[in-house]
């Protein structure tokens, strides 16, 4: 076994996990509030293209990241409006968001298609820690966004389980009627978390151009990561730390090719490109099986609009 190739692959998987984890954490927040958002791919595209444009214009990495996050947030507010205020079918609205996002990002990104970006996130080595075999390159030689993502996952786990607001959030996703009678502002909670979902997806998209391949390409940048993130939330049974771990697995799946080639194993690129959509189909199967959905811990009111006056 080629050790260095394997370690390099692992280290790259960790970085590849970052955008998946960010988008999935965002989707988790949205789904915990009972709102399914199939627009993750669209929000990531919008985040990526805005981040590129701002990064290109200002040369500031952090401003670009911020712009990506903001773009995702605003874009998600469309879904919030449609599904919370207008009580539209969430599946339809989310898919529309992805289609719209694809179109919008193509439009915004017309002038930059294929161009490189000068600013990007760079890994920083933690002095001697980075030299520890295996763990060093994996954990102590990554870029700042990796550490931020780990912290986000921890914060979200804490938020959900230990805080008053987290309790209200979970209640809104489980039983909005109950939350409403207990004085939780159901609509506001849903809006905030759907938009937060957009913030994270936007950040994930921004990271794709700022941290992985510093270039914008309409069909190459996200390449189905948004769908993987959606699937990941389900496989992680709506638990933030599991999302993090799962993201590493998916990250590895995306980078394994490099190492496998060295080992003489070829996986057709088409197969890898298909993977996100195959996973999405699997998720829809779970989604369609109510019993299974309950058992793996889906919020009970996921996908259901809340109308107070109705029974």
């Amino acid at each position: 076994m080629n050790d260095t190739a394997f370690v390099l692959t692992l280290a790259a998987s960790v970085a590849a996990a970052v955008p998946i984890a960010l988008a999935a954490l965002g989707e988790l927040l949205s789904e915990k509030a009972g709102v399914l958002n199939l627009g993750v791919e669209g929000m990531m595209l919008v985040g990526a293209v805005t981040a590129f444009q701002i990064g290109d214009a200002t040369g500031s990495l952090w401003l670009a990241l911020f712009a990506g996050a903001l773009g995702g947030t605003l874009f998600a507010s469309i879904h919030a409006f449609l599904s919370v205020t207008l009580r539209a079918n969430q599946i339809v609205s989310g898919l529309a968001l992805t289609i719209f996002g694809t179109g919008l990002s193509t439009f915004i990104g017309k002038s930059i298609e294929g161009l490189p970006l000068a600013t990007d996130f760079k890994p920083t080595a933690w002095g001697p820690l980075a030299d520890i075999p295996l763990l060093g390159p994996l954990l102590f030689n990554q870029d700042p966004m990796f550490y931020a993502t780990v912290v986000f996952a921890l914060i979200i786990a804490f938020y959900l389980n230990r805080t008053r607001a987290g309790l209200a959030l979970r209640a809104v996703g489980e039983s909005p009627g109950t939350a409403d009678t207990m004085g939780v502002a159901v609509g506001a909670v849903r809006y905030v978390h759907v938009m937060l979902g957009g913030t994270f997806a936007g950040m994930g998209g921004a990271y794709l151009v700022l941290g992985q391949v510093p270039a914008w390409s309409q069909d190459g940048t996200t390449a189905g990561i948004g769908w993987i993130a959606l699937a990941l939330v389900v496989f992680a049974s709506w638990k933030p730390l599991r999302v993090l771990l799962g993201a590493f697995l998916f990250g590895f799946a995306r980078r394994a090719n490099f190492w496998l080639q060295g080992e003489g194993v070829e996986i057709p690129a088409e197969f890898l490109a298909m993977l996100p959509y195959a996973l999405t189909v699997l998720v829809l199967v779970v989604w369609g099986t109510r019993d299974l959905r309950r058992r793996i811990g889906a919020p009970a009111a996921l996908g259901v609009p809340y109308i107070r006056d109705e029974r």
Binding site: A168, E174, G177, T178, A179, M182
Partner: peptide, 17 residues
């Protein structure tokens, strides 16, 4: 109007400002 997955305590303090 109770959240089935929550504990009694969690249901009691839900939404309490």
């Amino acid at each position: 109007r109770l959240v089935d997955r929550f504990t009694v305590a969690e249901n009691v303090i839900l939404g309490d400002p």
